[in-house]
Design a binder for these strands. Sequence first.
DNA 1: GTGAAAGCGCTAACAG
DNA 2: CTGTTAGCGCTTTCAC
Lengths: 343, 343
Amino acid sequence: MRTTLKTIADATGFSINTVSRVLRNDSRISAGTSRIIREKADELGYIPDAVASSMRSPRTKTIGVVSADSSNPFFSEVIKGISEKAEELGYQMLIGNTEEHAEKEEHLIRLFLSRKVDGLIIMPSYDSSASHLAFYASLPVPFIFAGRYLDGLESHSVLHGDVEGEREVFRYLLSRGHERILYLSGPPCVSNTADRDRGMAEAYAERGLAVDERLILHLPGHMEDGYQAVNSAINKGLGFTAVACFNDIVAMGALKGLAENDLSVPDDAEVIGYDNLMFSQFMAPALSTVDVPKHKLGYTAMDILRRHIDDPSLAYETENLPVRLIFRDSTAGRMKRNKGGKT
Amino acid sequence: MRTTLKTIADATGFSINTVSRVLRNDSRISAGTSRIIREKADELGYIPDAVASSMRSPRTKTIGVVSADSSNPFFSEVIKGISEKAEELGYQMLIGNTEEHAEKEEHLIRLFLSRKVDGLIIMPSYDSSASHLAFYASLPVPFIFAGRYLDGLESHSVLHGDVEGEREVFRYLLSRGHERILYLSGPPCVSNTADRDRGMAEAYAERGLAVDERLILHLPGHMEDGYQAVNSAINKGLGFTAVACFNDIVAMGALKGLAENDLSVPDDAEVIGYDNLMFSQFMAPALSTVDVPKHKLGYTAMDILRRHIDDPSLAYETENLPVRLIFRDSTAGRMKRNKGGKT
DNA sequence: GTGAAAGCGCTAACAG
DNA sequence: CTGTTAGCGCTTTCAC
């Protein structure tokens, strides 16, 4: 028979209620009573029943996390950030992965709601349809989008300057005089793709250059994608002297493809990734990339979520974390300081 | 006001009980009733309350996962395996990380028990003390150790031939004639270290060679460890011509250290990792390593756990998944087939 | 095939 | 400071 509050109450002669109060550190309990009850609870190996508890109280102290692609360490880092803050705050996490399948998103959230989570952190697919928006609008708990957004719900997001990041990448590449930059962009089902594409376009526009659409590919964002894209670009004779990648994983694939075609990096082609994974510095050559504050993204999202859980009337506000370009061996130059130079 | 079974019952005129039966696909319900109730439930946007449900029924359909080091993609892969099987079976996961701090292990498990998980998958620290063993013996739910074991509870584990794997590594290295092999082993707080050390020792013993303890370092297993160890080994003039690493992450650090000291791999030193992370093939040079079935490990652990949840009287049995050595560019040779050769 | 009643373990509201 | 009472939403008897 499991030890419950009643067991302890019977064993000590106090009421169930008093036992409950002691174990919850409720005020107005005498030190003596408290000691007696705690000792008995220890002795009996009492384990509180959080299920029963959250049945009565409005809080479950559990959040739901809907992550995207579990094979990408980017998300592990974000989740680690969430997890650290959650632990600080005494929350536990239910985790699910969509693997970028949009239809799993609502399903997972429903499952989490059914588990009565106090709030949600989501890395949503970029579906700004009315029904999807309505779905979110109807959620009975606070929710934060981490690293992504939905049109119309922008304020729910913690972002990491995607426009700015990709703009810097292309500013650098264009400043180096590249005329044919292969751009291995991301999948359309993700808001980051839209933002980074915008950043790219802005950099071209700043120099009054037109974008050559044939050099822009939208790929799912896995390793094979980078590899195959580079191969087929070469086979098709689609000349290029630089490759900008949606993430470091794609860049790894690209690097491999380039090497197999005897193209040297950065001499024949400069390559830049995105995310700055721990591993990127160990690639051959060490990958230049955009550093994204992954851990901080998760940590911040949880921090904000907590505030909304504590105060449901709090207004949502977007936060945009800064990113920065990191130069390693897959690029040949450095960014020239743009001293209010040309627009 | 939230929609509950009662709301639907009142709206349709049936009893709460009947509604509950319909929504749980219980038998003995007329098709008509079922349809009416389902429609009403949809219309009202009913979300089942899993908390209340698991209060009455013995199952919560939730498992707890105690992972170790969240910064190592090895564990992400294992968790992905768990997660896939869990989803198939309709289970949800509560996840926590010890970051290899032994004291967090019991704490997390207690938290999970308090949430009434149906079972646990744990990557435990190697603490075979009586009290820790007693702790596990007293758990009221089934538990599986993934990739690790505890002395006295071996049968609870799904393992991946650690002895065999490291033995192969050293068989290869010794067959290449190396006389001074730097062995960057793992932390003592993990059963894999003990097993791999054993595999190493066996390989030496097979050739009647003594192990030089000065060439064996036990490190926590992070990137810096490999980097620093190689550097200090070189600085101390501790000559070596090969490096065997506890995992691919350590190997990455080692590779970096070697490169910075102008030692060429594999010519000046052959390097072998362990785990076969996705990234390892992209390092410079591509890393030779031991392939561990990470995904399968998690998937199998969940599969076994489910069987124990369904039948608590089932006897525990260790499973030992096979590993294999993968040769890439950080080694110079191939394994000679050991055709019943020496020993 | 359906309904009524009881109760899971706990917390909250109200007494005293 | 402590006890009594009620009831969260659901599942599980046990009726009919």
